[in-house]
Design a protein around this nucleic acid. Structure first.
Lengths: 136, 136
DNA sequence: CTTGATCCTCACGTTGACGTGAGGATCTAG
DNA sequence: CTAGATCCTCACGTCAACGTGAGGATCAAG
């Protein structure tokens, strides 16, 4: 498959695919004229790479993990990498969840304000609290 | 309070605080000699800013939201900003969760391999699947 | 009064995952 | 066989949230 088709089917840019090759994430052989040729499996591989990028992994970290997809051989080091990244993702999910909940709290306040703009100033302390439960 | 103390208590660098001021996120008045003076409330404010940064918001986006913390006046535009950012965070949580689950799947495979390296090649298709459930 | 800690303002450096032409070769449909 | 689509390789640009000195003023304690 040519690079444009892979890009389209995987939902990334052509430039991104060249970058992935540069980083060693995807290997493409070449046609006699030098054009990249990808196997069908490249599409799923790129989607997986995108998944990890979206989770905040760096290309170096992805490069450490990809061999497992190819060989399914799990050294203890590979297992540790996988669990380490999973842990990192968990931490991020927790941080995002805290931010989400905090925004939700503010949105509730905003809704209260819309219902009765004049009588909401008593809730001002809630906006300043960070983790503590309501202390009225 | 001086900048060093705020940095320490909020868990950020002095440079970060200067940057926040540059972005209009935190206002500090100055001593006659030009040193920044922060109110106590600055610590919580900076922690809130950090929370939003950690959730992937840009300083511009945070700048749009901060006035609500100060005034607790919710225009319809403000409410929309809050809900928009909450939605964006949700999307990120979902993406992270997908990556997390995928890694978990791989970790299970790795564990299987460790238990019986020779008999696991039959699971090779699992590593290539993306969203589909086990189809044995 | 002095000294070490803390603060100030420029202003350039860093990092990662690409974007964006420049300039040119190759492919493919009609 | 020709033209438009697609591809190639450099190689510099981007953006955001700071890091990192340089060079100098200010503060707090003894």
């Amino acid at each position: 498959m040519r690079i444009g088709k892979v890009a389209e089917r995987a939902g990334v840019s052509v430039r991104a695919l060249r970058y992935y090759e540069e980083q060693g994430l995807v290997i493409a052989d070449r046609s006699p004229s030098g054009h990249r040729r990808y196997p069908e499996s490249a599409v799923e591989r790129v989607k997986f790479i995108q998944l990890l990028y979206a989770a905040g992994l760096t290309s170096k970290a992805i490069l450490q993990i990809l061999p497992f997809l190819d060989t399914l051989v799990a050294t203890s080091q590979m297992t540790r990498r996988l669990t380490d990244e999973r842990a990192r993702i968990r931490v991020k999910i927790d941080a995002l969840t805290r931010a989400h909940d905090r925004l939700e709290e503010l949105i509730r306040l905003a809704a209260e304000y819309e219902n009765s703009p004049a009588t909401c100033s008593a809730s001002a302390d809630v906006a300043a609290s960070h983790t503590s439960p309501p202390r009225h």
